[in-house]
Simulated scan of single mutants.
Amino acid sequence: MSSGSDSDPRYANVDERKRKRMLSNRESARRSRMRKQQHLDELLKEVNNLKSQNSEVAYKIDAVTQRYTGVESENNVLRAQMMELTDRLRSLNSVLEFMQDASGFAVDIPEIPDNLLEPWQLPFPVHSIPNAFQC
């Protein structure tokens, strides 16, 4: 006895549609895998790009931090020198005052400028800080 699909043309048509659908599904799955692989490749490229940018930013931050530390150290030295010079000026002024009192001659004793006593109140305009990420 033969199967119905071998002799009946209706079943042959169904088998042909089934075979075409299987081929279509395989092709669709292949395209889907290709799209997925392409998407994965794009994501990996983006990850590498972001890692590179991150390294560059970290390098710039490091450079700016080193410059900041250097400027801060220099500022501390300058502050100490300013305090020492201010103390010397006070001492010299007191010697001049003593000489004036002892000799009776009028001596012009300059006042210590306020900006030396209060360096945060500088008499000149404050300049803006340049962009820290420009190297």
Rank of each mutant, 00 (worst) to 15 (best):
S128Q: 12
V14G: 01
H39G: 10
N48A: 09
M99A: 13
R88I: 06
V95S: 09
R17I: 08
E16I: 09
P110L: 03
T69V: 02
S5E: 12
G4W: 15
M83R: 10
R10H: 15
D114K: 06
L23G: 13
A12T: 06
H127C: 06
L78T: 11
V71E: 14
E56M: 07
V107N: 02
D114P: 02
N115M: 07
R26D: 11
V71N: 13
N54M: 11
I129R: 06
F133R: 07
L23C: 03
I112D: 09
M1S: 13
M99N: 07
H127I: 03
L92P: 00
D6P: 01
V107C: 11
S28Y: 13
Q66G: 07
P123L: 08
D62W: 02
C135D: 14
S5N: 13
E97P: 01
P110K: 05
H39T: 10
N54G: 05
P9C: 03
C135W: 08
E46H: 02
Y68C: 03
L23V: 01
Q66P: 00
E84K: 14
R35F: 01
Q100V: 00
L43A: 12
I61V: 15
S91Y: 10
E56W: 02
K18W: 09
C135I: 12
K45S: 10
I61S: 03
V95M: 09
R26Q: 08
N48T: 11
R31S: 11
A63Q: 10
R19G: 06
L92W: 10
A102M: 10
N75A: 14
R30H: 05
K18H: 14
R10F: 15
S28Q: 14
Y68R: 08
R21D: 13
D41W: 02
